[in-house]
Amino acid sequence: MSLSLIWGWFTDPANWQGTDGVPNRVLEHLFYTGLTLLIALVIAVPLGAWVGHSGRLRWLVTGANAARAIPTLGLLFAVSMFVGPLIKSDLAFVIPSITVLVLLAIPPLLSGTYAGIDSVEPAARDAARGMGMTGWQVLSKVEAPCALPLFLSSLRSATLQVIATATIAASVSLGGLGRYLIDGLASRDYVEMVCGSILVALLALVADGVLAVIEKRAVSPGISGRATRVARSRARNSDPHSEPDSDGADRTDPDPRQAALVGSRSTGPVEATAATGTPSERDRT
């Protein structure tokens, strides 16, 4: 097999048309991914936010993480066998596939949301309540914006996982990019399999890029670390005496938690979940 075979596959007009063409398979793949993420978000975000906000039922997050150990493919067949006899239509395949993918996406989203809310500085939370914000206002005006970096990195993590794993839908006779893998395997067309894998990887990269852009725009410069960096370079370039307050000496070091946020942003999404292994105890009086 050589690069020219792969090139040949991608440039063959037959591969870009009809049900089995790349555009249709990509759309199908995006549909499974989008639907999965939507359902997972609707379940995981309110739950994670509530656990983080109230500090109750933290074991839910740990439990969800443990559920990641269940092998996806086995679960898919188990659910298919259970649902199959009940429904007589394409849904008999869609429901199990989406269910399995949702179960895959929930743990990172749940722990990312929880970790984000949990990482909000206790002093900021305390001040928010003490100033007369209602519980909902504390959550929406303070906790949620501060939780955004960790949440978004967990969303990136979940998206990557779902895009990669959505290929399994093809194994229960649905569409998506997984078709190239399953069909290629069946017909021993390894070029098709390789090209399918390349498409999955490309799709994942593009989706991650889009989310990275969203992250950059949505996260306040005050917590993304951008503001601090700008200020640092400005301070370096300007006359030290222009500092209007003489107490520059006790400038607070960058919050280690913020450093962690920046770190997890740049190294990739998986860390969001690692942060939740030991839910920190916090005074909630």
Partner: peptide, 30 residues
């Protein structure tokens, strides 16, 4: 309780400023 708190200024040890808001927007909170 919310009304009571909005009528009382509250300052704490580590300031508890909202990191995602500018100084101006922190001050306009209440």
């Amino acid at each position: 309780v919310a009304e009571l708190r909005r009528g009382i200024g509250y300052v704490i040890q580590h300031a508890g400023l909202f990191p995602h808001r500018t100084v101006l927007d922190n001050v306009t909170t209440v």
